[in-house]
Design a protein around this nucleic acid. Sequence first.
DNA 1: TATTTGACCAAGA
DNA 2: ATCTTGGCCAAAT
Length: 105
Amino acid sequence: MTPLAKKVYSLLDTVPRGKVTTYKALAHGAGTKAYRAIGQIMKYNPNAPETPCHRVVATNGTLGGYMGKTDKQTLQKKIDLLKKEGVEVKNNRILNFKNIFYSFS
DNA sequence: TATTTGACCAAGA
DNA sequence: ATCTTGGCCAAAT
């Protein structure tokens, strides 16, 4: 577990159910500008059920990826999880993204 | 120590 | 709306 990863994961725990956050927001909250590194952390440390990485999306509202993949099949699972929490997704895009976006103070 | 690599981002064309 | 470019920075190799 890398130092940045610890911060990121702890921040992820603060994201309420039914909301989503972004890689950039996580980086900002963690006090770094390495939003790209966030994605790498997820890829190399997939704690799938324990850490809600499915609530992390790109800034433009697209899903990004899930479990190290970007293919439609894998993303669909992510979508289902989000939908279960009340987040609507259409064509790999979050609906009402600005409304359910969660940022760290 | 050096190089490569992205589940990224913003700005142009 | 889509595509390309350049920048970004921690982690992996």
